[in-house]
């Protein structure tokens, strides 16, 4: 399972990095801009008379603050996910320290399963 997951993560890495190495993006005026922003630009271009009728209540005052908040979002999610997976993994394994104490002279991994 661990090997499968490492291969899958490797594929993810390749897919994410590959676009950066492709030559096609060199010709773009603004390489790797956001697709959401491009859609917004396309609307403004085709409908120059359309005015957004509502403004965001608050906007990050700079790109740095924006990246801070995006990082915070990812960190909160990853933190919780990691906490959960780690917690349950820990709970699913018998504590080695307790095993070693209980079984006296046999502090090896298999002692928990060995018949006394």
């Amino acid at each position: 399972m661990t090997r499968t997951n490492l291969i899958l993560l490797g594929l993810v890495l390749v897919l994410a990095v590959m676009p950066l190495l492709l030559p096609v993006t060199g010709e773009l005026a603004e390489p790797f801009s956001g697709a959401d922003g491009q859609a917004q630009a396309a609307i403004s271009e085709a409908h120059p008379d359309y005015l957004p009728w509502f403004e965001p209540l608050w906007e990050p005052p700079s790109g740095e603050i924006e990246s801070l908040l995006f990082t915070l979002q990812a960190a909160l999610g990853a933190g919780l996910l990691g906490f959960y997976l780690g917690l349950r993994r820990g709970q699913s394994q018998p504590s080695k320290r307790v095993d070693a104490r209980d079984s006296g002279a046999r502090p090896d991994r298999t002692s928990a399963d060995a018949p006394d």
Binding site: V24, G77, L80, L87
Partner: peptide
């Protein structure tokens, strides 16, 4: 906690803007 983790997964993934072959990010 599993439910919260499913939400957390959406939290992480939708924060990641990843480059694509078209030369834009999503």
């Amino acid at each position: 906690l599993l439910l919260a983790s499913a939400g957390a997964f959406a939290f992480v993934l939708s924060a990641l803007k990843i480059p694509s072959v078209t030369g834009s990010c999503s």
